[in-house]
Amino acid sequence: MENVQHAASTDDIVSRVCSVLVDMTDDWDMDFEGEINRDTFLISDLAFESIDIVQLVVAIEGEFDKRGIPFEQLLMVDGRYVDDLSVGDIADFLSASL
């Protein structure tokens, strides 16, 4: 029962993160034509750059109405940005952090 609830909440998080990403990339000129889902990667699919990641952090904090989520644990390894992130990675991280 607990696992089912957890899966449901993760699905909800995925859907809310996707919605944030759709808003952000609405007016971008990019090659990606599919639908943003759990398997979409921020850099290789959506051509995110550092500033977009930083803006996404702000947008997610606004969406979930929570400040100070430790995104650095997800975004950085040894003081440098990770190579890429999927929507699923973000949802799993949020599921554990919220």
Partner: peptide
């Protein structure tokens, strides 16, 4: 530089 290709910047 940083994350991504930096082309938009």
């Amino acid at each position: 530089g940083g994350m991504g290709k930096g082309e938009r910047s």
